[in-house]
Simulated assay, not measured.
Amino acid sequence: MAPVLDPLFDDLKIEDLRQRPGSKWRVDPDVLPAWVADMDYPVAPVIADAIEHTVRRGDLGYPRWEDGHPLRHAFADRMRERYSWPVDVADVREHTDVVQAVQVLLHLGTSAGDAVAVHTPTYPPFHHTVGAMGRKRVDVPFLRTSESWAANITGLADAVATHDCRALLLVNPHNPTGRVLTRDELGEIAAIARRHDLLVISDEIHAELTFAPHEHVPFASIDADTAARTVTLTSASKAFNLAGLRCSVAHFGPRRLLAVRDAEPTELYGAVSTLAVEAAVAAWRHGGDWQQRLLHVLDRNRRLVAEAVASWAADPEPMPEATYLYWFAADALGLGDDPVAEVLARARVLLSGGPIFGEDGRRYLRLNYATSAAVLQAVLNRLRALTAP
């Protein structure tokens, strides 16, 4: 059955996409890219209008946010409205992106040689960051079950105790598997954090891309102890495709860590721009209708990918419960030890995957399905052709 099309998201022409200056489409002209986590869709009109209005009124001088940063208030309102999580704006700070925030937090909240627990497969910049900062990365593999991916609570508890971990880098919803951890699972992780006095850095950037009936639960909302040890990171960048504007927020539960952060020189970690803030605030305050249409299209697309994967795999991977990224085993496509390079060479499709996600990602691929139905079908057709006799 042909997919139901939405003109807002499906009227994309490959020749136009190839003219974009960003990294995703800067590939050879016969290659279809479905790798880096950028959506192909146009900017939401409310965001484009907010940026244009700011430029046209000449408001690009030094911003004055001392009386209350608009991004902090927009974030606090968003958390209350979406998740019934009360956030004090006094505990919110800005960073250029989530990766920078993770690096700042590891720098200020841990010491060289400290062990940091990380679920694998892992978003590659996080996988690299922990080791590059002189911390000991302790990998805790997600477990593939008959129906989904499990957070391996027992493995996490054992790893934290064995390696005397000082921090946990939690990614929920999880990139790349797309798992949305349940309140019960988060409660078990919170108990481990409490037992071992862990700093928890919770990356929740994909939260607003959660598909029903799954529900995102902010980790810091579990209980008072969890809140007091958790720094929550998020951004409008994934749900509204604004990564290039480089704007994220961090909510500090640990007051001592916030004080350490605020004692640093004011410009040491850079600052977010006026346009970035205008875009994020417009997204969170006025982008609801656009986002609902987006989620319908992404839900359709993940099902198209699921059908394709089921056509070539006897034991297909579960559909992601959030994100626009599909994680699946490469073996059923008849690929060797470097599946990303082989798919590129044989199918002329660029995906992510492999050992940059951790050792247990070596024989997996990650497909970004945030594109039009036509482009996605072309990608899937090329992948399916790899299985042809």
Rank of each mutant, 00 (worst) to 15 (best):
H216T: 10
D315V: 13
L275N: 06
A322T: 01
A306W: 03
A276M: 02
L333R: 05
L257S: 02
A306D: 08
L333T: 04
A313T: 11
E317Y: 02
D225C: 06
S248C: 08
V260C: 07
T234N: 14
W284L: 15
L233K: 08
E317N: 14
G336V: 08
H214G: 00
R229Y: 01
P316V: 09
P254G: 06
W284T: 03
V260S: 13
T266Y: 10
R302L: 12
P254C: 03
L295N: 04
D338A: 15
T226N: 04
D315S: 14
V277I: 15
A282E: 02
W290Q: 08
R246M: 08
W327V: 01
R293S: 11
F252H: 05
R285L: 12
D315T: 14
A280D: 13
L257D: 05
H286V: 04
G288Q: 15
G270F: 00
R255G: 06
D262S: 10
L325V: 06
R302K: 14
L333V: 05
L325D: 02
L233H: 10
D331F: 05
T226P: 03
R302P: 03
D289F: 05
A243C: 02
T234K: 08
D262F: 03
L258V: 07
L335E: 07
D289V: 13
D337P: 15
T230N: 11
P320M: 03
A224F: 05
T323W: 01
A283E: 03
F328C: 10
G288S: 15
P316S: 11
P316A: 09
L335A: 05
D299T: 13
P213T: 05
N241L: 01
K238Q: 11
D289L: 12
E307F: 00
A310T: 11
A224N: 10
